[in-house]
Amino acid sequence: MAAADSPSAALRRRDLCSRGIRLAGKMRSDVIDLLDTYVERQGLDASASVVTVEGVPVAAVERWDEQTGTQRLLENLTAYRAFRVLLAQMLEEHREQLGDADTGLGRALAAVLLQVSAFAYHLEELLRLESRGPPSEEGTAPPPVPHLGLFERKLRGLGVLRELAQWAVRSARDLRQLTKPSPGSSSAPSWAESP
C-alpha cells in the first residue's frame, strides 16, 4: 500500500494524472476517427453489434465508484497491455491483407497503437509511485492469434476499437477519481483504500 504521500509524490501523481487525462481524451477522439475509417474501409455496418470478443478487455464495470485507486490503475494497465498486443496483431493483419494499398488506415492504426503504448507506460509510472510498482509483463505470453475468417477478423477489429474507445473514457474518469481528495483529507488519498 502507498505510504503517506510525500508532497513531491503527490505533485508528481497529480501531474501524471492530469497529463494522463489529456492523453486519454486525445486517444479517444483518435480512436473514434479510426473507428469511422475502419468501418468504412472494411465495409462494415456502423451499427453492427459485436458480441464480446474473446481476449479483448471489456471496459464495462459494475460498482465503478467503489473501486480503489490501485484497482483502477491495475485494471487499466492490464487492459492497455492487451490492447497493445491486439492493435499490433491488427496492424500485422492489415499489412498482410492490403500491403501498401491502404496506408491511411495503417497509419491511423499505428498512431493509436503508439498512444496505447504511451498510455500503458504512463500507468506504469503512476504505479511506480506506489511501493508495489507495476506488475511485470514477463511470463505473460500474448494470447495466440485466433484462426478466423476475413469477416470474423474484421468484426473482431471492430470489437477491439469499440472497447478501446470506451476504455479511453473510463481511463479519464479513473484518473480524475485519483486526483479527487477523499472527504476530510487535504491531500490526494493513498490509493489502496480510496474509491
Binding site: 453489434s49 464480446t52 471496459a59 470489437g159 470506451q166 476504455w167 473510463r170
Partner: peptide
Amino acid sequence: YLQLFSTVK
C-alpha cells in the same frame, strides 16, 4: 446503471 463504460447497447 448497473454497469458503466459498456459497449453493449
